[in-house]
């Protein structure tokens, strides 16, 4: 009897989990667009993936109206002080004190270091996951509960590795019914015909999947192209 009960319990939990995940995934091949009530401003989070990823991410921000995106949260990998200083440089260039809101910086341990053996990757990735969980889930929840605003209204991702960790934590938020930012992925200018690994992983998960060369979309998969963005 108890075995049957456990089997029934496990299968219902599995079914409910699958249903929940299915219900929070972006709808099919189409990009989700939210006709939202007009608001004055919102908060933008940007992952700076170091090197070329950081340069491209900051180029995307260059033309944005910082009075509209009135708070910027830069997420960088621990130890990547170069990315942070580039972000600060952009802020100093673009903002006049007191007018464009402010910005803050979050650092998260890398999911995988360059040349790190695959065998030791799981524990490193786990540390990274916990840190993202703290910043993106716990901290906003402690500040406002289920009715709190998400840690940001939109999260911009353009690779590499650690951005998948951030996306996973956002999905955890969605899964348990916490507010979550819009997820926007922009594939690198360097990717002409094929997606990067983070591009492949995030393609079905993000609200907007954007590439910079139309050839990539020849596979009829999800995504859109508006030409070069950087």
């Amino acid at each position: 009897m108890s075995l049957q009960f456990i089997a029934a319990l496990v299968s219902s939990v599995v079914c409910l989990t699958i249903f929940r995940v299915w219900s929070i995934l972006p709808a099919g091949k189409h990009q989700k667009r939210h006709p939202k009530p007009k608001r004055a401003s919102c908060t933008l989070a940007i992952f700076l993936g170091s090197g070329g990823h950081t340069s491209e991410a900051l180029s995307l921000l260059q033309a944005l109206d910082f009075e509209r995106y009135s708070k910027r949260i830069y997420i960088a990998s621990q130890g990547d002080s170069l990315s942070i200083s580039k972000a600060v440089e952009l802020e100093n260039l673009k903002t006049t004190p007191g007018k464009c809101g402010g910005y803050s910086v979050i650092t998260i341990p890398r999911a995988r270091h360059v040349h790190q053996p695959l065998l030791t990757t799981p524990p490193t990735a786990l540390v990274s996951l916990f840190s993202a969980f703290y910043h993106l889930t716990c901290s906003p929840f402690l500040n406002g509960g289920f009715n709190s605003r998400p840690f940001a209204d939109a999260l911009i991702l353009n690779g590499p590795g650690t951005c998948f960790v951030l996306c996973a934590i956002i999905y955890l938020n969605k899964f348990i019914g916490l507010p979550a930012p819009e997820l926007i992925y922009i594939e690198s200018f360097a990717r002409v015909r094929s997606l990067s690994l983070s591009g492949k992983l995030l393609r079905p998960l993000v609200d907007r999947f954007i590439v910079q060369w139309p050839q990539i979309l020849d596979d009829q998969g999800r995504g859109e192209c508006s030409g070069w963005l950087v």
């Binding site: 933008l44 180029s59 995307l60 260059q62 033309a63 944005l64 109206d65 995106y69 939109a154 926007i184 922009i186 907007r208 954007i210 508006s226 030409g227 070069w228 963005l229």
Partner: peptide, 9 residues
Amino acid sequence: DGNRFQRLL
């Protein structure tokens, strides 16, 4: 052309 991304966002 920074307007492209601005428009998308």
